[in-house]
Structures are given as structure tokens and as C-alpha cells.
Amino acid sequence: MTWINNIKRLLLSGIFFAIQLNAMAQTYTSKNIKLALYSSTPLEDIRAATDKCTGVIIKDSREIAFQVAVKSFEFDRKLMQEHFNENYMESDRYPYAKFKGVLDQQIDWNKDGIYNVTVTGMLTVHGIDKKRTVPGKISISNGQVAVSTEFKVACVDHGIKIPKLVFTKIAEQINIKVSGKFNQLK
């Protein structure tokens, strides 16, 4: 009777394998989300960008999360980049900035379209958590998911001090722009 057992096992394995695949199909990830920051004052505009931000969307739980290595931001002035890491973000101590939240709306991931959503969750910058609700846009076309958002981060919310002594002018509110394409996790 061993052959019946074998077939049973084979069937069972198949079913569970399918379940596992299904579980993975619930998840989208991305490794090259673009993140740009912009600080504007009447004296000086400062911009920096990275395309090394990573992201995860879990359909079932409507979880959405982003993480970026602070050191991956590039400035056109290297000295500014050094000051950004050393004096403001302290990226040796707090290497990542992170946002983890849950979609406030239910969306149909199988239907193409553009969905305006809000995400409520925790923004962690400079080691300090701040609860935020951020508006964003999710576009779905042919199974491809693209996410974009724009929001502001107040330096004071995250314990980033701008001393009076500094000659370079840095805005109290920093604009953040995020855009990236997600792929289904296989």
C-alpha cells in the first residue's frame, strides 16, 4: 500500500506548495524606490536624492513599509552630504529612516486604476518615532503597482537641531517626494 501513501503525500505536498505560492503572491516589494528631499529657504535651496529606498506592500494586512539607508542620499556638494550625515541625521547612530503603516482604504489589487489613499503609521527618522497619516497614490496596471507620495517632515519632530551659528540655511520643514514601482514577490 505504499504507493497510495506516496500519492497522498505528493498531493498534500502539492497543496501546501500552492498555499505557500499564494501567500507570496500577496506581497509586493521594491528595491529601487526614488526618494528626494528638498529644503527651501529664501537664501538657499538644498536638494538630495536616492534611488536605493526599499519597500514592501502586504495585500492581506494592507501593510505598507519603506526603509532607506540615510547614507545613500546624494548631494551635489559632497561637504554638504558629509554635514547631513554627521551633523543632522547622525547616520552612524541612526542608519535608517523608515515608515511603516497600514492603508486606510481597501483597494482592489486586481483592477487597473489609480487609487488615492492615505496611510497611517509610524515615521522613524533620526531614531525618533512620529505617528503620521500620509496621502499617496497607488496606480495599478497589468499587475504592476506604482506608489507615489509627497509629504513634509518637520526637523523639530525628530530632534534634528539647526543651530543659529550655521551659515547654510536649512528649512524647518523638509519636503519629501517618494516614487517607485513594486513587483510581486515570487
Binding site: 526599499t54 514592501v56 502586504i58 526603509q67 547614507k71 511603516k100
Partner: peptide
């Protein structure tokens, strides 16, 4: 059970 945190960890591209 894989949650967002552990997935982010596996995606980490920091040098």
C-alpha cells in the same frame, strides 16, 4: 507570517 519588517530586512541594500 512574514511581516513587513522581516521583508524589509531581506531587501536591505545598504553597502
Amino acid at each position: 507570517a512574514q511581516n513587513a519588517d522581516s521583508l524589509l530586512k531581506t531587501l536591505d541594500t545598504a553597502d
